[in-house]
Design a protein around this nucleic acid. Structure first.
Length: 117
DNA sequence: GGTGTGACCAGCT
DNA sequence: AAGCTGGCCACAC
């Protein structure tokens, strides 16, 4: 039988959006953390791809709060302005230097822990 | 409809 | 020690 559309048809993409939207102010997480929370660390690449499509999402996604494992602003170039991502994070209290969050370990927000695994 | 790529991560050589 | 490959799912051509 065909799958029932419009109900519970959440895919990896949709799940990523939900998690990212739940990131509190002044916090940041990593692609792998989200992927791991969803149950697949191998899907970390999809998380990044989901961010790329975040502009296509019906709701605004704070993709600037999602960085790589090193706390580096890898996808800053996808915000329309390469400095926008850093500006937003600094505006939330993050310490960024050389495109890398120095206090990433302090503002790191683990979905599996905060949302309740 | 198949192939390639993509804002990653971690393990192996 | 560092460099490369594999793996995952979704989207574009």
């Amino acid at each position: 039988m065909d799958k029932a559309p419009g109900r519970g048809d959440y895919t990896f993409f949709q799940n990523v959006y939900e998690v990212v939207k739940h990131i509190p102010f002044g916090r940041a997480t990593s692609y792998g953390a989200i992927a791991n929370y969803l149950g697949s660390r191998g899907s970390a690449r999809m998380v990044g791809w989901a961010m790329n499509a975040s502009h296509h999402a019906p709701e605004p996604i704070p993709a600037h709060r999602v960085v790589n494992r090193n706390g580096m602003l890898t996808g800053k170039h996808h915000f329309g302005s390469p400095d926008l991502m850093q500006q937003l994070l600094e505006s939330e209290g993050a310490i960024i230097e050389d495109d890398q969050i120095k206090n990433f370990s302090k503002i790191f927000w683990d979905p599996a822990k905060e949302l309740g695994l």
